[in-house]
Simulated scan of single mutants.
Amino acid sequence: MPVQARTTSILFVCLGNICRSPLVEAVARRRCAEAGLEVVLASCGTGNWHVGKGADSRMQRAAAAAGYDLSLHRARQVESADFLRYDWVLAMDRDNLEALDVVRGGRGARPELFLPWAVVRSPHEFPDPYFGEAAGFQQAVQLAEQGVDGLIARLRGG
């Protein structure tokens, strides 16, 4: 009887879970499926301001223009059990990373930054487009796609 390979699980984390992390989750969901990879994917935020709300409308528009649907997303806040549920917890920036270390409490998956882990050379932190112009949301989509491409290469052992 063949041994069943364990499915990898990844949690993407940003500040409010309405811009970067739901975008990266959507990009990863589609691209992993296209690559034939079975991966459990989710996203959350370190803050609680947007819990239960949908993705930012500007991010929804930028994502939709690139073929990603964020309309069903609902924000949630990270909890300590997430570090036991997920193999990898990938933060969008250093502030998120520091907040995750506090919530983790030394148990479970050790959080890391998403972009360097996913072999994107620069920037190391995923800029938050929330307080910027529409172009920042379009750039976020491109950065998410780059990062996920590196992530898929990593999942394949490349």
Rank of each mutant, 00 (worst) to 15 (best):
H124Q: 09
G16R: 02
E98H: 14
V120E: 02
Y130D: 06
R61H: 05
F137P: 10
V102N: 01
P129T: 02
G136A: 15
G16E: 10
E79P: 00
V120G: 01
L113R: 13
A109P: 12
I18F: 09
N17F: 04
A64H: 08
D69Y: 05
S9Y: 03
E34S: 11
M59K: 02
R29Q: 10
V119F: 05
A99S: 14
V24D: 00
L15C: 06
G105T: 08
Y68T: 09
D82G: 03
P127H: 00
E133P: 11
C14Y: 11
E125A: 04
K53P: 01
A62K: 05
F126E: 00
F114G: 04
H50K: 11
F137T: 05
D82A: 06
F131N: 11
V13M: 10
G108A: 12
L115Y: 12
R29P: 00
A109R: 11
A33G: 05
P22L: 06
Q77C: 10
G47A: 15
Y130H: 12
D128H: 04
R20Y: 07
R58G: 02
V24G: 01
P123W: 01
G105C: 13
R76W: 04
V13T: 07
R76C: 14
C14E: 10
F12V: 05
L115A: 09
V39Q: 04
G16A: 14
N48F: 09
E34T: 08
D87K: 09
E112A: 15
M59S: 12
S9H: 04
A118I: 03
E133L: 13
A81V: 12
G54A: 13
G105Y: 12
P22M: 04
A109K: 09
E25G: 04
M92E: 08
S9L: 05
C44N: 12
E125D: 14
G136N: 13
L113D: 07
R29L: 03
T7E: 09
P111A: 06
P129A: 01
F137Y: 15
V51M: 08
S57M: 06
A99H: 13
L72A: 15
A55C: 09
L11Y: 06
G132E: 15
R110A: 15
A42L: 01
G105W: 13
D128K: 05
A109E: 13
R20I: 08
N96W: 05
V89C: 07
G36L: 02
L41K: 06
T7S: 03
G67N: 12
P129C: 03
G16M: 07
F83M: 06
C14Q: 08
V102M: 02
A134T: 14
R76F: 02
L41N: 08
E38R: 14
Y130S: 07
V120W: 01
G108Q: 13
A64C: 02
V89D: 03
M92V: 11
G45C: 10
W117G: 00
Y130M: 04
L115P: 10
D95A: 15
S80I: 02
S122G: 00
E98N: 14
S122H: 06
H124W: 01
R110L: 15
P111I: 11
V39L: 10
C14P: 11
